[in-house]
Amino acid sequence: MPSYNEIEDFLQDPSFVEWASGNEDFFWSSWIAAHPEKQELVRQARQLLIAVQDQEPDIRDEEINREVRRFIELARERKTVRRRKLLIRWGAAAALVLLLLGGAVVLYRFPASETTPLAGAKLEEKINDSDRDLTFSLSDGTRVTLRKKSRLVYPTQFNTSFREVTLEGDGFFDVAPNREKPFLIYADETVVRVIGTRFWVETRETDVRVSVRSGKVSVFDAKEFKREYTREGAGRDLKGVVLLPNQQATFTLETRQLQKGIVEHPEVIATNPDELTVEDRPVTEVFRQLEKMYGINIEFDEKRLKGCPVTVAFTTEGLFEKLQLICEIIGARYETVDGQVIVSGNGCQPAHE
């Protein structure tokens, strides 16, 4: 996320403006708790926004719009612009125009809504300073496992419309189901949203990775998530990646790109998986059986491969080893794309050495 080294860095974030204006936001409460060295900057930025609320409240909409347009035009015409501030209060919303070197930034304080993540509970934290995994339960029954040098900030009780926590490091979550209160994990530049499922969240220097064991998980760019949830119709246009068992999403911090894939070692998710010892069976049936075992979609040309019989007995091989062996038998190849397996080949000719 942004470095927040200047007051303006905070003022350019609509969710900070919302929080600083008196609406408690769990993300900012936990972020400040995790960054005590930024408290003075936060205090100054918050005081500035509080001052906005003390300004004359009777400024009309057209006056605000006219001033905003004037400042933007001025910024475009001049290569070097001195920093100026326009502090305006407008009913339930405040507009703050900052002229910075080389451009103009328009900020709005959005009115609070029921869909804005809020938190009024006391925050607690768990830090794993040991060399072993640390497992504990949250008030809703969710089980969390932290790897060493990892930290979780969470409320004592989940009393709002969201169950929100902030993770630094790596954590495994077995989330207690509750459709009325989605579970949100803020991890570096991502937001993970779930109802009830089991998954890992791993934060590293260059990326954040979410991998799912069971259930369904949605992963979002934190910047997009906060922007959508600070406006009317919150979340309606929110775009993210939906993950199913044995799928993962990697968010690259530098490019802010979310990439969907398959976990390195897929696990069998079928309750009673069939034994994969087949004799002279169509390969299409074997692929469908693998889909059920691992919950991963396998795409292939049904017409081209339906006449290809295979005889194979698997023991402890993983999914990718199974696929590789099958493809060698029928002279095909496979690749993983966007969280699924794509098999391509010309028919039933075995691969040449």
Rank of each mutant, 00 (worst) to 15 (best):
P2C: 05
D9I: 08
D13G: 02
V17E: 05
A20F: 01
G22R: 06
F26G: 08
S30M: 09
I32E: 10
A34E: 06
Q39S: 09
Q47Y: 05
L49S: 04
I50G: 11
I50H: 12
A51D: 13
A51Y: 07
E56Q: 15
I59D: 08
E63Y: 09
V68S: 06
V68A: 10
R69M: 06
E77M: 07
K79V: 06
V105M: 11
Y108A: 13
Y108L: 15
R109G: 12
P111L: 01
S113E: 10
T116M: 05
E124L: 15
D131L: 13
D133R: 12
K148D: 06
K149H: 15
Y154T: 01
T156G: 14
F158Q: 12
R163G: 01
E164S: 07
E164A: 01
D170M: 11
P182I: 00
P182L: 01
L184F: 04
Y186I: 00
D188K: 11
V191A: 00
D207C: 06
R209P: 00
S218L: 13
F220R: 09
K223L: 08
R236Y: 10
R236F: 07
D237R: 13
K239G: 00
K239L: 03
V242Q: 10
V242L: 11
V242N: 07
T250M: 12
F251P: 07
P266R: 04
I269Y: 02
A270Y: 05
P273D: 04
F287H: 05
F287I: 06
R288W: 03
Y294E: 02
F300K: 04
K306G: 05
T315G: 10
G318E: 10
L319F: 14
F320D: 09
E321F: 02
L325C: 03
A332Y: 08
G339K: 04
Q349F: 08
